[in-house]
Amino acid sequence: MATTAPPDATLSPLPRADGSAKYSYAGYTVTATVTGPIEAQRRDEHAYEAHVDVIVRPAAGVGGTRERHLESILQSSLSQLILVKNFPRTLIQIVLQVEATPDNDYVNTKLVQTSLNFPIIPALLQTAVLALLSAAMPMRATATSAVVAVVSQDGTSRTVADASARDIETAQSVHVLAFTSQDELLLAESEGDFTVEEWDDVYETAKRICCQSGASKAGIEMLVDDESLNGPDMRQFLRSTLETKVDADLHWK
């Protein structure tokens, strides 16, 4: 399964946009562009803050209700991150083009259309954050995100981080969580049956994936093998991607 491959990102692949990023992980490839702050249409204008407009375009066909729902989830998360008060009466437009989705050998992907597509949210959010960083948009913090599934096996339930499409198909419940770089919970969406204990478990797992670079820096070496099973260190990935970009931009310093 593609989940074992490390995440990969390219910053500013599109020269004409203010900011852009291409991100691929776990079989998903998403390209994002950020334009803004630009003049907003009269009906979108807020007197005291920028309007964040998120557009999700699926890999094939035109977007429908499902994309509109994804947009509303991302819109509320991203406008928390961007310092919208810095740009009153303007528009910040974020376009997310899904380029590839993982193949699911077990089910016909067409049928999945009816339910909300949870595993794509981390890919979309991560790409949007990278594109915003590439556009040098003033932000409160960066964010990392993970999808966690609760799978019941032989009567006991366990949490699966970075769940594959098959895991999600058979899971009792699926959760998407996002954390800011200050370890605050930014987004929590759940689907399915689960108990409070299970949710606490899910929260801990997601937090470990999203916020672990601080822990590994503190020298907890023993946990490293354990952690690597639970997916890559997203925060470290974000930092190293940006480091490459900043070094290339400021080579003249």
Partner: peptide, 8 residues
């Protein structure tokens, strides 16, 4: 010090 984005 950074590069990129839109002129403000």
């Amino acid at each position: 010090e950074y590069n990129g984005g839109r002129y403000i």
